[in-house]
């Protein structure tokens, strides 16, 4: 997924080969991750796609099924991966992920600790930020989930950057061999305040901690625990609004008639039932307009950040 291996780097000259992970794009909300295997086929509502037809084609190409339906084949990125990964838990999405990576001040070479691993949605972006020389240590107390995450990192080619541990961080804290090595710690736990003292031990001075909690009561308690060893404690909520874009023919007959501000608006009222007439009026020029999508995610979680105090 990441261009650490230069042969996997996107290029005009790089084509899909056997064993590659591709994102099959039907439309913006229908995608699927597929491992290309010469003998394999993909079946969806557009028909049957033979993988062997894909090999040798460039990434980003359109491929057809036996019925003539088509999909696009994309190179995976952490953003696409977040949309296709199997949800073993509630996951973090791009707005929170991006903000966390930025506020944790992650750069190549950083060591970052995460708990819990969950579905590995954030881990993938953490790995992208600290590659090629840093490392992500991620912990989950759920053995199966940890194993599934490990498999995923193998599939996405991140296993050299991410180590998945099975551990109850709330109960036991982070492992002692990581004391003082972490540039940043991320907590997504039901009772983050239990893990905060341990997180403090793992961090370098001035290192940043982030705790993600859906409920304000969790934030309240975490913030109280943070005051003893941390400073610069700040809580945010970040959301995204998406827009629909449409080209519409706007009626401009008013200006064409050269009677600005006259009877026209009034006329519109009278002819409200004649809406179709207005739409058929082709005299207007098309205008591209945007409006916020009707529905949006209204809450994900609160992000609480804090810096470990520098004690001289």
């Amino acid at each position: 997924m990441l261009p650490i291996d230069s042969t996997k780097k996107l290029s005009f000259n790089r084509n899909i080969s056997d064993g590659d992970l591709v994102i099959v794009y039907e439309k913006h909300d229908a995608m699927k991750a597929v491992k290309v295997c010469e003998k394999s086929v993909l079946e969806n509502r557009f028909g049957v796609f033979k993988h062997s037809d894909w090999i040798g084609k460039p990434f980003g190409c359109k491929v057809s099924s036996h019925k003539g339906g088509f999909v696009y084949l994309l190179a995976p990125t952490p953003e696409l991966w977040t949309l296709v990964l199997s949800h073993r838990t509630q996951i973090l999405y791009i707005a929170d992920i991006s903000f966390v990576v930025m506020y944790l001040e992650l750069i190549p070479g950083c060591v970052v600790l995460e708990s819990g691993t969950g579905s590995g949605s954030l881990s993938t972006s953490l790995a992208r930020a600290i590659a090629p020389t840093g490392h992500v240590y991620t912990f989950d107390f759920h053995e199966q989930r940890a194993a599934a995450a490990r498999e995923d990192f193998e599939k996405t080619g991140l296993s050299d950057l991410v180590t998945v541990g099975v551990r109850d961080i709330q109960g036991e804290g982070f492992p002692k061999d990581l004391v003082g090595v972490a540039d940043a710690v991320f907590l997504d736990l039901p009772q983050p305040w239990l893990a905060i003292p341990s997180a403090g031990e793992m961090l370098k001075p001035d290192g940043v901690l982030c705790s993600f909690s859906p409920c304000i009561e969790q934030v309240q308690r975490s913030s109280e625990t943070l005051t003893s060893k941390f400073t610069d404690i700040r809580t945010f909520e970040v959301l995204l609004r998406t827009y629909e874009v449409r080209e519409v023919k706007m009626d401009q007959s008013q200006s064409e008639e050269g009677t600005p501000g006259s009877h026209r608006p009034c006329k519109r009222k009278h002819r409200a039932s004649d809406a179709s007439l207005w739409q058929q009026d082709n005299s207007g020029s098309p205008v591209v307009m945007a409006r916020p999508s009707s529905e949006a995610r209204g809450h994900t979680g609160y992000l609480t950040f804090a810096r470990l105090k520098c004690v001289a």
Binding site: F99, V219, R234, L240, T242
Partner: peptide, 8 residues
């Protein structure tokens, strides 16, 4: 997309 950021 348009992000929205609120601090508490």
């Amino acid at each position: 997309t348009e992000p929205w950021l609120r601090e508490y």
